[in-house]
Design a binder for these strands. Structure first.
Lengths: 370, 370
DNA sequence: GCTTGTACTTGAAACGCATCAAAGGGGCCG
DNA sequence: CGGCCCCTTTGATGCGTTTCAAGTACAAGC
């Protein structure tokens, strides 16, 4: 099963090597019959261009790399989806690597992509992107997603602090007197959400607030544990509003409360905080705040394209994506989301939107637990 | 920002080109101080090996490619997760491409991966894998996932027919008299599920069965539409058991029924059919049948490794993964699932498992809508 | 001092392809 | 029939590595 190479095709078709190469890359330069002959030979021989050789000889290929911390997080998927569609629109391929919540692995894939002569690379970093100054010097355009860089560089981020503020304002509007935030602020994004909550509540010193750590991975099981713990408190020590720093946490809390016979939202209201599709695609929707992941992915690719086309040195450039209004629009404007297959768009008709002028996120209040 | 290449490092470190290469690939061959010198130079210069050149010169790299039809489907993610963990265990990288439900794109990425000198490639194909005989002749090991190939080749598949049978048996056990299957059997997997349902019901001619098409994408919105339609029927024409060919379909049906004031599971029982995590991670779990996606991904990589190590010609080899018992075990055995972060494992304690000796799937009955 | 051996290091030869200056061929006009 | 121009095809060159046969330096043994 010897690999057939371009010279085999050339010999077999009775043309020269360069002609076959042209057939692949500049078909318009060939006489139609030559092109046809070559294509037939290619198919007959089962020739497959060696990408490594192409890249080596021809410089960068039209493809982007995307390194994500996890694949099973809805937000990352939205980013991937947005990036993918935008990349295809420009004729680029998108390759995705899963860093599996591992910084070393993230670095590894990043280097891998850079070394593969990708046209550009995007990361949704787990830590601060200042983690490796060497990265900034790389000769490949790079865009950081969902994070704020202090160093020069490109990034696209949602306003996590605003996300926290929105949910807090929602709680205030619902007349909350005692708010419990559930989750470990393990990542900067989560920290910012907590900060936003605190800032919003600073104006309301009469409202009691507490934050409960929920274990390393912020899973639904963690939420269930905390929920049980809350349920077992005397009624007057229970919060009347619980915010899950993560939607799955909120989901777990709800399960526990309901299992213990506490009415949601009758006795305790519960909301999530990160717009995880599972929150609103389940049969009983959860109130949450949706950061515009799809938009972030799109803008990321646009930033990459910009660097490629301008051949500009990577100056600092930051984008804050989405306004409250736009996010909602994106959800309902079918042509824009391009088969993104939002699971229950029809539900948004009953959603009340909590607009906030300086923010990127939208509160999707589906009311079931609120 | 000129790219620094291996010769720059060599010159700067005062050694030869081959020595730097050895530092990268066979560090044990170098004198410790030479190695140290070279590594320092590499870091100082920010040298990044050109992967294309490495691959071209050195043959295959230790990396696998995985082409998935969609990223936002839980099952595909489980595959990706299993494949990733297994690949890393063997020291291989895993790169993922999203075919976006597009056969052309799927082909494109497949060729891309093959041409990149990947050590192996896996696909979860949308159509029959016999789609392109040329693929079989490729000099790169390939494994098909979640599909049955009739041609020689490797594949790992779950038993979709059994999945349908299980859900039908569940319905029978619940005393169903009129079963409505909702969804379009657009893919072979779905067709097989329907077949399984029909086969199981063949033994019970007194049970009425109907299949309702739900539109191209089997979305929750489609399910909502069908659910509305069902709700509007006269009570005596309504099914007492609805099976969503897809969990999101089932989810949509439930929403519609409940919105129309029909009790679930009081008047109509509803179950899903594909073990989508959102089904059981939501706050109100849905009964569904879970194919062992994680296992499929794992086995896929194992099959790839086997081909690589034996350098065996790709003979036909099929694997059916998982038994009812094993799937449940995998869910509770933490060391096996390796941070797979199953969203609500604790719920399984209340799950009743419908075992079926010849099957790969497990019915997870969480009882909420059943 | 010479030989043999050991431990590193060297550098030229591929790897498969894109590129591009140059050659080839054919048609048209004079 | 010759000259010119345009369209198509050619093939040598280099992309940044790895590899490996050949080289060097040094030490030990005689």
């Amino acid at each position: 099963m010897a690999k057939v190479k371009i010279s085999d095709v050339a010999r077999e078709a009775g043309v020269s090597l360069g002609t076959v190469s042209n057939a692949l890359n500049h078909p318009e330069k060939l006489r139609p019959e030559t092109l046809k002959l070559i294509n037939e030979t290619i198919n007959r021989l089962g020739y497959l261009p060696n990408q490594s050789a192409r890249q080596l000889a021809g410089g960068a290929t039209k493809s982007f790399g995307l390194v994500l911390p996890r694949l099973d997080h809805g937000f990352s998927l939205q980013i991937a989806s947005g990036a993918h569609n935008e990349a295809r629109k420009h004729g680029y391929d998108l390759l995705i690597a899963n860093a599996d919540n591992d910084g070393i692995l993230q670095d590894h894939y990043l280097r891998y992509f850079m070394g593969t002569q990708m046209s550009g690379v995007m990361v949704q970093p787990m830590a601060s992107p200042d983690w490796h100054p060497a990265m900034a010097k790389m000769p490949v355009p790079i865009v950081h997603l969902d994070i704020h860089c202090s160093e020069p560089g490109y990034y696209v981020a949602a306003d996590n602090e605003a996300q926290g503020r929105i949910i807090a304002e929602l709680a205030i509007a619902r007349g909350a007197r005692h708010i419990t935030v559930v989750g470990r602020a393990a990542f900067m994004q989560l920290t910012l959400r907590v900060l936003g909550i605190h800032k919003a509540l600073a104006l309301h010193p009469d409202i009691k607030i507490e934050v409960i750590d929920a274990g390393e991975w912020n899973t639904a099981a963690d939420g269930y544990g905390i929920g049980t713990q809350i349920a077992e408190r005397p009624a007057n020590e229970r919060p009347d509003f619980v915010v899950g720093l993560t939607d799955v946490l909120a989901s777990g809390v709800i399960s526990a409360l309901v299992d213990k016979g506490i009415s949601v939202p009758g006795q305790v209201r519960v909301a999530g905080c990160d717009g995880n599709p599972l929150a609103w695609s389940g049969s009983v929707p959860l109130t949450t705040v949706a950061p515009p992941g799809y938009e972030i992915g799109r803008k990321g690719v646009q930033l990459l394209m910009e660097q490629i086309e301008n051949k500009a040195p990577a100056k600092t450039k930051h984008i804050r994506v989405g306004s409250a209004a736009r996010t909602v629009t994106a959800v309902t404007a079918a042509e824009d989301i391009n088969r993104q297959e939002l699971v229950r768009p029809f539900l948004l008709e009953r959603a009340s939107t909590q607009a906030s002028s300086q923010t990127d996120a939208t509160a999707i209040n589906l009311g079931a637990y609120l």
